[in-house]
């Protein structure tokens, strides 16, 4: 062994590193950007977000014999299973006009939020390799995961429209309301994905817990039953919670637009806007505040 040669004559000599950095206008590496700079950087990555989501969706089915057909088959099978159990075996359909459409809308719309939360929560924790290799605004990942689920949803909605028409609902101008309803739900889902991406990046146990929480949420969201009929039987506080539940609101709005037999209540639009904007704003800021920490794991 040789004598260790004293390290770094330079760095310790003359000006302090911090002052030297300041004099030459060097910026702190990996420091969290301001919120406006962050939004700008994220906007610059919009093409990556879309391409990454598309690529992930396609990569998902490449090993299967049916390939992309699964994008359509999955929602169809889902609808079939729920119809078999709730429509035929349990006969929950009594009292609901056009129960098949009612049920399938509920399942598909809730599944969108459910999957967005789940894949959002994995988007940082499951991509640590990417986070530690390339520099990009980290919100790219939870947003891409929501876009990925949105692409799945659009296929489901196509299936949905066929089912709704086949069960005798008329095609009306109200169908156009589907667009704002899904846009608002997407904004809401992005917010949740951002929130759970940050939580799961530090507490991995969240990933195990989420499926149970989401299932509970589903049973309370009027997927299988008419929430307004059910709400009449419970105390006022519970009524407010049941009817104000964002998942229930988005489901009701889609039902209202596609099914003339099931119009949406008027209060549901402002509520849908509120949940979308509030959740997205809170989620975005909450996620951004840990921006520099995500590489740590």
């Amino acid at each position: 062994m040789t004598e260790p040669v004293p390290a770094a004559v330079g760095a310790n000599a003359s000006p302090a590193p911090k002052d030297l950095a300041a004099r030459y206008g060097l910026a702190q590496s990996g420091a969290r950007p301001t919120l406006t700079a962050y939004i700008k950087a994220l906007w610059g990555r919009r093409h990556f977000i879309v391409e990454y989501a598309r690529a992930r969706n396609q990569a998902q089915y490449t090993d299967t014999a049916l390939g992309q057909v699964w994008q359509i088959l999955t929602p169809v099978l889902n609808a079939a299973v729920f119809y078999l159990i709730f429509g035929i075996l349990l006969k929950t359909s009594r009292g609901v006009h056009n129960y098949i459409s009612f049920l399938v809308v509920g399942v598909f719309i809730f599944t969108y939020t459910q999957r967005a939360v789940l894949s959002g929560s994995r988007s940082i924790a499951g991509n640590l390799g990417l986070v530690r290799a390339l520099h990009f605004p980290r919100a790219t990942l939870p947003l891409a995961s929501t876009v990925m689920e949105l692409q799945q949803l659009l296929v489901s909605v196509a299936v949905l429209c066929v089912i709704v028409l086949a069960t005798g609902e008329p095609l009306t101008l109200k169908w156009l309301l589907l667009i704002p309803a899904l846009l608002l739900q997407t904004l809401f889902n992005c917010g949740l994905a951002l929130i759970f991406a940050r939580i799961t990046s530090r507490v991995r146990d969240m990933e195990q817990l989420l499926p149970f929480a989401l299932r509970t949420w589903m049973y309370a969201s009027g997927v299988f039953f008419v929430i307004h009929t059910f709400a009449q039987t419970v105390p006022l506080a519970a009524q407010v919670v049941l009817k104000g539940n964002p998942a229930a609101v988005y489901i009701e709005l889609v039902r209202g637009s596609l099914m003339s037999s099931h119009p949406a209540a008027l209060y549901e639009w402002p509520l849908a806007v509120f949940w979308a904007v509030a959740t997205f704003a809170v989620g975005f800021v909450y996620f951004w505040r840990a921006e520099e920490q995500y590489g740590r794991g």
Binding site: K18, A27, S29, Y52, L130, A133, L134, H135
Partner: peptide, 26 residues
């Protein structure tokens, strides 16, 4: 140095955005 792992203490100051050569993870 690339700003991908946050410092526990101390700091790294850089000119522009340093980049690691490699995209395998993407």
């Amino acid at each position: 140095v690339a700003g991908l792992l946050p410092p526990a203490s101390g700091a790294v100051y850089t000119e522009g955005q340093p980049s690691l050569l490699g995209v395998n993870a993407a």
